[in-house]
Design a protein around this nucleic acid. Sequence first.
RNA 1: GCGGGUGUAGCUCAGUCGGUUAGAGCGCAAGAUUGUGGCUCUUGAGGUCGCCGGUUCGAUCCCGGUCACUCGCCCCA
Length: 421
Amino acid sequence: MSPMQPVRGTKDFFGQDAEHFRHIVQLALSLGKCYGYLEVMTPIFESANVFLRTLGETSDVVSKEMYVFEDKGGDLMALRPEGTAGVVRAFLSNGLTQNLPQKLFYAGPMFRYERPQKGRMRQFHQIGAEVIGEASPFVDAEVIAFGHHLLRQLDIMDGVTLKLNTLGDAQSREGFRNALVAYFQSVEQKLSPESRLRLQKNPLRILDSKDEGDRELLKEAPRREAYLTPVAKEYFDGVCSSLAAIGILYEIDPFLVRGLDYYSHTAFEFVSSNLGAQSAVLAGGRYDGLIETMGGGATPAVGWAAGIERIMLLSSFVPKDVLDVAIIPISEDQMEAAFVMATHLRHADVSVGLEFQGNVSKRMKKAAKQNVHNVWLIGEEEIQTNHVTWKNMESGEQISLPFAEAMAKMQKFKEKKVFKE
RNA sequence: GCGGGUGUAGCUCAGUCGGUUAGAGCGCAAGAUUGUGGCUCUUGAGGUCGCCGGUUCGAUCCCGGUCACUCGCCCCA
């Protein structure tokens, strides 16, 4: 229809949407400060290696969803499909290993080549939090508490539940994985085609299959609990009791898994049924092995990411009225005076609407439409006496005031507005 | 990558069993109203009927392809 179309799976944000977006990021950022996080901004593209090595060669994110390109120097680059790997790379590149733990917060665009649908875009935006260099159940609980606090402040915890699970340490994971593979191989013929593929590529993924038949088979499958080492079990119990201690409700879901290879121990997801086929709004877990994989020393870490577009689907946002006052010249002769006056007010931090065209009636209509509560009318008489005619748009009342007085009153009005919020 | 649904005005949608100038509501613009607003009334602008091809005397309508949007599968925040 239109000659220029946006790239598939991308979206433009105007006005209210853009404000909504910014509101969420700002809330997360200031809350992050409250929890002691430092903001970090990393490039949106990295050497492809950063993701290839860390996410798991067989994960879909790497094998079919990554935007990879060769730059003019012949190096293989990738648009970041997620935040953690880049943050860890930055952590290592900048020698932050000397000062642990690091609590890092970020927000920005991510890119995945996927079929767009509700809550899923090719360019989407995430907020993320990572705590690198500390292994304590309290850290996991604190990270989750931050996410929980954010969702609560956004007023979207209604209808959102926290699902919790442990993937165990490397040893637990290995034992469980082997048992699971053995079991599913024995019933392979009954598995769905998708899950037969998963059995080859990523057997743990069968656990969260949506297929009815698979779910039936899962009832008889080995339980992860049985394969948890005492250390892994104790750690998970610690996370659960820490959450209970601060009154965060959760639901243990033994079938919860993580998509990316680097996760171990705690895994969690805040899920909602209002996101179409998607469910996770904020999800993460512990990834103790990742830093070592990327060439650093053995360093424990835990974090999460939240989809900003998904948060927007769940939350409502009412923008504030922007303009404090509209200045309306009665005729073109007062236009310059109105312009000068508007500038004075703006320098005093008062937001001013000024129309450049139309007669008084037109401009009044414009002001009304923009929900402006105050209008200053400037005519020949006002100019001569250095007054303004101040009209209250709600009551319809209007009074004449000397300009200086009107200016002072306007600033007071503004302050009052601020106090109210 | 696979499957379903939908593409007509800026937005939400009618409509033509294939026929000459394609409609409504909202929105937008002008006027009624030359120093005063949301209501009302009048008038107006705005469309390659997604795109390409086929069938036909004739296609916005039927058929094929394609693109886009949307929902789901896969996967994931």
